[in-house]
Computed example of a mutant assay.
Amino acid sequence: MRFGYFLSTEEFTPAELVEQAKLAEEAGFDALWISDHFHPWNDEQGEAPFVWSLIGAISQVCSLPVTTAVTCPTYRISPVVMAQAAATSAVMLEGRFIFGVGSGEALNEHIHGEPWPSADVRLERLEEAVELIRELWKGEFTNHQGKYYTSDTARIYTLPDSPPPIYVSGFGPKAVDLAARIGDGYITTSPEAGPLREFKEKSGGKPAQVGLKVCWADSEEEGVEEAHRLWANSGLPGELAQVLPSPRHFEQASELVTKESTAESLACGPDVDAHVDYLRPAVEAGFDELYVGNIGRHYRDMLTTYGAEVLPRLRELAAQR
């Protein structure tokens, strides 16, 4: 089992994210996740740099594999341009790149003014986009006239030696089915064993990644305060994360999330045992890779302590599974 670090573009500046990537490698993490947003979830988070610029910068300071977690290649940017961006990233990372894709959130994808469609339509568009991207990665002139996308004699010239894997994000049953059918792997932010088991059975055992957040701080109280201020939105139920269109709407909805529920849903503070216990279900569920991101300003302390104390214990748990 591999253990990676989750770079949050919603919360940190480009310089901080590049620093975190370098520190994660020095701490002994195996790989990186990086989110792809146009907006943060709320104004307290306050950042949203362009992920493709960051991947290029990260490739120059560390040698860890990188997965986008996740890119929506269907609305904000066309799949033709996404194919070029992902191919260049794979070249710069010398093949250590996984293109993580999903059906998107209105928060990031509605910005051109298109109506936000149903989940079924979003998944249908994602399937066509992935098909087109794979065609473009063959390096030939590509003509495509599909239901949603058109490509007119488009050719990607800068390509890696082999196409990067495409991992598909899935939360509901239909998305898990799609991930198993068209993906080279699976991505989720839920450590639940049920969807993972379903994906493994339907895909023939393809790899699966899960990402979680913690809040390292000098005390549990400080960690809860910081996590609730910055990431109360992670406690919103159902499909709200997919359909709310702007940070202010997430701020309004997050008023319903209590500080107590934030405390119950995350590992907050400096207790190593609490962090290991929080991550244990993801290890025991059978994921192939677990990514952990830190909320708040104490990411240097988190990375150092995880490298020295948390990762060895997680690896021991994985070996015993």
Rank of each mutant, 00 (worst) to 15 (best):
K202S: 14
G104H: 11
F199Y: 15
T305C: 13
N42R: 00
M1V: 14
L290H: 01
V283H: 11
A15K: 15
G56E: 03
H298A: 15
D277L: 14
S103H: 15
V176F: 08
M82V: 08
P163C: 09
G4I: 06
V66M: 06
P163Y: 06
E26S: 14
G113P: 04
G204H: 10
G307I: 02
F250N: 08
S78Y: 12
L303P: 01
R297I: 08
L159G: 09
V176C: 12
P163I: 10
F3W: 12
A318C: 12
G194Q: 12
Y148R: 01
R125N: 01
A154H: 07
K202V: 09
G56Y: 05
P73Y: 05
L279V: 10
K138M: 11
V168R: 00
H249S: 13
S234C: 13
L178I: 05
Y186D: 03
Q60F: 06
R197K: 15
F29L: 09
A285P: 13
R248A: 14
R315G: 06
A31C: 14
E226L: 09
A241V: 11
V292S: 05
A24H: 05
F171E: 07
L279C: 12
M92F: 14
A208W: 10
Q209C: 13
A267M: 01
A175I: 02
T153K: 15
W216I: 03
S35W: 10
P191Q: 04
Y148Q: 03
L196D: 02
E201N: 13
V283R: 06
E220L: 02
K200C: 12
R315L: 10
E10H: 11
I34E: 02
P73E: 03
N294S: 15
R134E: 10
Q60N: 11
S190K: 02
K200G: 09
L159K: 07
I58P: 04
N42T: 07
S78T: 15
A193Q: 12
H112E: 14
T158S: 13
I34W: 00
R197I: 11
P163V: 07
N42H: 00
A129H: 07
L159D: 03
K213D: 07
R315D: 00
T68L: 13
R197E: 15
D161V: 13
G211P: 00
G223L: 11
L17F: 13
V257N: 01
P49E: 05
E109Q: 14
D184C: 06
E192F: 14
E109H: 08
V257G: 03
A180W: 10
L244Q: 02
I182G: 07
V168F: 12
F97W: 10
G100Y: 02
L126Y: 05
A31N: 06
H112C: 00
F50Y: 15
P195S: 08
T150P: 00
P312I: 07
I98F: 10
R315S: 04
V121D: 06
A21Q: 03
R125E: 05
